[in-house]
Simulated scan of single mutants.
Amino acid sequence: MITVHLKYEIDPDRIEDFEEYGRRWITLVNRFGGTHHGYFLPSEGDSDIAYALFSFPGLAAYERYRADSAHDPECQEAIDLARRTGCIRRYERRFLRPLDQGPR
C-alpha cells in the first residue's frame, strides 16, 4: 500500500472554494480505486495550511490513477476550480508507507 500525503498552502479567504475542491477529489479518488482518508482544514493555529491523505494498493495503482485522471472530465473540472478561484497557493506531495507490525 502507498499513501499520498498532501500539504496545501491555501488562501484563507477562499476556504469554501477549497472545501468544494476537496469534496470533489474525495469522490474522484475513491472512484479511481483509491481510499481517501479525508481533507483536514485549518481550525486552530495556521489559517492557511490544509492536509489530505489517500491510499492506493500500490505504486502501480497510483500511477494508473494519475494517468486515467489526467483525461477525466470531472478531474479536469476540479483542477479548473482550484485554478479559477486561486484557493490553492501551492502544495507538496509525499509518498508514505505504513509500518507493518510484523511478529512480536
Rank of each mutant, 00 (worst) to 15 (best):
I2M: 10
I2G: 07
T3P: 03
V4R: 02
V4E: 13
L6Q: 10
K7P: 01
E9M: 07
P12Y: 10
D13G: 12
R14P: 02
I15G: 02
I15V: 08
I15T: 05
E16C: 09
E16Y: 06
F18L: 07
F18H: 09
E19Q: 14
E19R: 14
Y21M: 01
Y21A: 02
Y21T: 05
Y21C: 00
R23K: 15
W25S: 02
T27I: 08
L28E: 01
L28S: 01
V29M: 01
N30A: 07
N30H: 09
F32Y: 06
G34Q: 07
H36F: 11
H37L: 06
G38S: 08
G38L: 06
P42V: 02
P42L: 05
S43L: 12
S43D: 11
S43Y: 10
S47N: 07
D48Q: 11
D48I: 03
A50P: 00
Y51E: 05
A52T: 11
S55W: 13
F56C: 01
L59K: 13
A60D: 15
A61H: 13
A61F: 10
Y65A: 08
R66H: 10
A70P: 10
A70S: 15
H71C: 09
H71M: 13
P73H: 13
E74Q: 03
E74A: 00
E74C: 00
I79D: 04
D80L: 14
L81F: 04
R83C: 11
R84K: 15
T85V: 10
T85W: 00
G86N: 05
I88T: 12
I88C: 03
R89C: 09
R90N: 14
R93M: 15
R93D: 11
R94Q: 13
R94L: 07
R97L: 01
P98L: 15
P98D: 15
P98Q: 15
P98N: 14
L99G: 04
Q101L: 07
G102L: 02
P103D: 15
R104L: 13
